[in-house]
Design a protein around this nucleic acid. Structure first.
Lengths: 337, 337
DNA sequence: ATTACAACTGAAATCGATTTCAAAATCCTA
DNA sequence: TAGGATTTTGAAATCGATTTCAGTTGTAAT
């Protein structure tokens, strides 16, 4: 493979001049033509490792996700990739596979790869390693915050999203509203739960502990907790499921027990994917602006890489309730309208 | 950040010795201890760019997918990531976003990044660039083959998968069986179509052109082509949809027209994701061993990187028909059993 | 023609590792 | 303990770029 020296030799000039041209410096027109011709001829490409060694920049950023096959993170990655591509950065997507040790390894790897910036949706709850890394490399947190860590962060207004979902059920007259919460170690889990509680408070309704179940955002727990809900002596008339995967599990449980949405049970979930439209009836759901999250985070990271001085930004994006056909008016409807 | 020189100084030895230890060479026990201590103390990490410059290896491989958010490729990536992680390689996942030019750019980028190997599910149908790259870097093709290109390839037995699906419908007495094919530019599109045809031939049944529709593997075309099928004067009693996304579109169409699976229409699709189990009734589908595809391809690439001599491998993995509840016996059933 | 100034250019140092090869240290045997 | 064999070591060259800085060339003004 041709090097900058070869190009210089063929173009009858020096490596310094070739480098200058490559990096937008000024070069006599004639020299430029000769160099360009040589580059073409030799099919020369800069050796980014050599360049990076000298410049201490890799023009590469990475996004570490908990799970590659999780649609939420895949969509965010899509948004991020677009922005970095436009900015001339190369973008690596890495999955920690829900394994904290793997995440640690990846972080070490990125450090020695000398990436210029990191987007992180962490699977850990400890911030030690990240804290250290942030001294060398800008990091933007996405969706998963770390305790007591002052860092740029992009997330979604979970409280409001959950509030909207719960409110929609209340508005149709439901009072026995079950919830399948996410894990309370995660901020998103806590916040969505809080949105539910707040809606009850605002409408002056009493919470019923037996209708509040905790899952872990995975299909299996959606299934298990929905079964729990259905076992209650007084079944809920509606249920709010706090993420997509638990929603899948919940629906499997419903199908098994032959419980129909919305005739037998009204249904809302957090996250809006294809399923929501494909299901019959289409599901009312809280939509997160996933691609935007990725874009926003990337832009923050880009700014941060250019100038690491300013104080940290926390950006919250709005969620939206998409009304479809999975909520029915409660039978015992006694509204004032 | 500490360099190998710093480590050498602190450990009171030379960079050469440190390097030797780092790379598994022999070093006196005492020296080793001193070096390890120094590394710890200084929090030293090898600078992979510097190393790569010298060794001409990056210990990095990349997988280029058409679309990050396509479950099929995401699952393959998951399998691949695991294998490379075990082998000590770092793994980059890059999306061409269904854009041939973007793919070209990525390929160029990887070349200058000096990755050691490439996994590719190409969005193009031209092999020129890939052919050139293969002279420098081992490439393994996944699912998407390129015309006239002799390369290691991993794919799935599409013909058989489609045959199984079609056969399952025939076995239940269906004769008017619609198909929504994938794009015929893609091998998978062609092969699945061929499996359908072959089943008809083997069972001595006549094909009905009006029930053969062509989509592009996207949701929208699944919707559109299903609408077309339903417009036929004599509706099909069963339909085989050639991938997941078209299956989503098809089901939306069915819901809209209030056509029930399997009462009004029996249904089989290629690809088996969560939806198949969540849908009511659960869908009969052809499962592809996605994670295995990724693993298999990675292992081939690993071998290829170690020894680029042997002749090219084409590996076909088996598909499996998962029977669930979306096929009903045909009304006009007149079988010999 | 001379000077002043701007525009270009290239030799050499540098980034942080690896690797070669000869020298130094250590071990072993007689 | 001498001498040879074996281990262990480090100086220096190298990978392919960038960057500095001094020198060269070109231009304009006097």
């Amino acid at each position: 493979m041709a090097t900058i020296k070869d190009v210089a030799r063929v173009a009858n000039t020096s490596p310094a001049t070739v480098s200058r041209l490559l990096n937008g410096g000024r070069v006599k027109k004639a020299t430029e033509t000769a160099i360009l011709k040589a580059i073409q001829e030799l099919d020369y490409r800069v050796h980014t490792m050599a360049r990076g060694l000298k410049t201490k920049k890799s023009y590469t950023v990475a996004y570490i996700v908990p799970d590659l096959t999780n649609m939420f993170f895949a969509q965010i990655a899509k948004g991020a990739q677009e922005i970095f591509h436009q900015a001339g950065y190369s973008f690596m997507l890495l999955s920690a596979d829900n394994n904290p040790e793997r995440e640690e390894e990846i972080l070490r790897f990125l450090l020695s790869k000398k990436v210029d910036g990191i987007l992180l949706s962490s699977v850990t709850t400890s911030n030690q390693q990240v804290k250290e890394i942030m001294e060398d490399i800008p990091v933007v947190l996405i969706d998963r915050v770390l305790p007591d860590l002052e860092a740029d962060t992009v997330l979604v207004d979970n409280v409001n999203g959950a509030y909207l979902a719960t409110e929609a059920l209340i508005a149709e007259g439901h009072r026995r509203i079950g919830i399948i919460c996410g894990p309370q170690e995660l901020l998103t889990g806590r916040e969505r739960y809080r949105g539910y509680i707040r809606a009850f408070e605002d409408y002056g309704l009493a919470l019923n502990e037996s209708l509040i179940k905790f899952g872990d955002f995975e299909i299996s727990s959606g299934y298990a907790q929905m079964c729990e809900l259905l076992k209650q002596p007084e079944r809920p008339t509606a249920v709010f499921v706090c993420n997509y995967y638990m929603c899948l599990g919940a629906i499997i449980a419903l199908n098994e027990k032959n419980i129909k949405i919305p005739e037998d049970l009204s249904f809302v979930s957090f996250d809006d994917y294809e399923l929501s439209q494909v299901y019959n009836p289409p599901l009312t759901a809280v939509e997160q602006p996933m691609v935007e999250i990725g874009e926003e985070a990337s832009e923050i990271l880009l700014r941060r890489m250019a100038d690491n001085s300013k104080e940290k930004i926390v950006k919250r994006l709005k969620t939206k309730l998409i009304k479809r056909g999975s909520i029915k008016k409660a039978d015992s409807l006694q509204l004032n309208g």
